[in-house]
């Protein structure tokens, strides 16, 4: 059974800010471009077919029980609304710590994920539980602000006690081919994050092509990302099995090449336990068992948790649960 808190045995992420594990690749815009454009292309049909094929795995009985708890432990329980209040965040924190009010054996979630100004409230709500607090930052979700503003945003969250920072990349710069600008911004944010682990959000729905997602993944990892994350949840298309599979291939290959392990976080659009289990199959059969741990894989989600809990109850009791038997938050 997975533990609810990230395993203390995990080594701290190697400090890589400003120093690329692939040497000269990041020396200039043109060398970075040459490297990223030299990555193998992605065939969309084949990628999606592979993701779909893995989606047909049948996860039953003991494997399902294991996977449901693992998935619960990987949730970054998220609220990112303009209407968020400390009260709302407290409720969320309580749920993260005790997801199933009827069954205290349910694991806690990995983290709660909030806006920077809610970090303090969140810290308080999860204090002592081992549940982490993640904060979006860098002018989330659009990221359209000056670097100084973004860095201030990050420092603010860290100062409030955030354990993790979920930043967004400058998609405009990326799509315009200004890869070094994107890279340097990530490096700067990484530095500003200090001890907090950095999740780099690509907003895959805006990058539009799989080739771009692969390039962004490598760009993010070169710049020191601790996690690469699909989406903000604020655009039309967020995490999909295919784009997550592609990012899992990237972290697998990056570790093979550099020895550095990077986590993956699909976010947005994953609402059912069935979907979550498919993502875990993707992890298992692509990056491998080393990533089947909430230190290396997360779900950015909110409503997913209740479905996981209902499925968990069904497995325990043999009867289908209903929404009145899980908590609204």
């Amino acid at each position: 059974m997975p533990t609810s808190a990230p395993n203390a045995a995990h080594p701290p992420t190697a400090p890589r800010a400003g120093g690329s594990p692939l040497g000269d690749v990041t020396a200039s815009d043109s060398s970075l471009r040459r490297f990223l454009h030299g990555l193998p292309g992605v065939d969309a049909v084949g990628l999606e077919a592979r993701a779909a094929a893995l989606g047909t795995r049948s996860i039953k009985t003991t494997a399902k029980a294991y996977a449901l708890d693992l998935a619960i432990s990987m949730v970054d329980l998220t609220t990112l609304e303009g209407a968020d209040t400390p009260g709302k965040v407290r409720a969320l924190g309580a749920k993260a710590v005790h997801p199933d009010p009827t069954d205290r054996t349910a694991p806690t979630t990995a983290a709660v994920c909030v806006y920077p100004d809610m970090v303090a409230a969140a810290k308080e709500a999860v204090a002592g539980s081992g549940v982490l607090v993640a904060s979006v930052a860098t002018a989330f979700p659009a990221g359209r602000a000056a670097l100084g503003v973004k860095l201030a945003d990050v420092r603010d969250a860290v100062a409030a006690g955030a354990d993790e920072i979920d930043m967004v990349i400058d998609r405009g710069a990326f799509l315009a081919g200004r890869y070094l600008k994107v890279y340097e911004e990530i490096v700067a944010v990484k530095e500003a994050s200090g001890a907090a682990r950095l999740k780099v959000i690509f907003e895959t729905g805006e990058l539009s092509t799989y080739d771009n997602i692969r390039r962004a993944s490598w760009l993010g990892m070169l710049a020191g990302a601790d996690f690469i994350k699909t989406s903000t949840g604020k655009v039309g298309v967020n995490a999909t099995p295919a784009n997550t599979l592609l990012m899992l291939e990237a972290v697998r290959d990056f570790r093979a090449q550099t020895g550095v392990q990077v986590g993956v976080k699909p976010a947005g659009g994953i609402r059912t336990a069935k979907d979550a289990l498919k993502f875990l199959v993707l992890v298992n059969e692509t990056a491998g068992g080393d990533w089947l741990d909430n230190h290396w894989f997360r779900f950015g989600a909110s409503s997913l948790l209740n479905d996981l809990l209902m499925q968990r109850q069904k497995l325990a009791t043999g009867r289908y649960s209903g929404p009145d038997y899980v908590t609204v938050d």
Binding site: A63, N284, L292
Partner: peptide, 8 residues
């Protein structure tokens, strides 16, 4: 695979 995620 190195994991405990053995499909039943």
């Amino acid at each position: 695979p190195a994991s405990a995620f053995e499909y039943a």
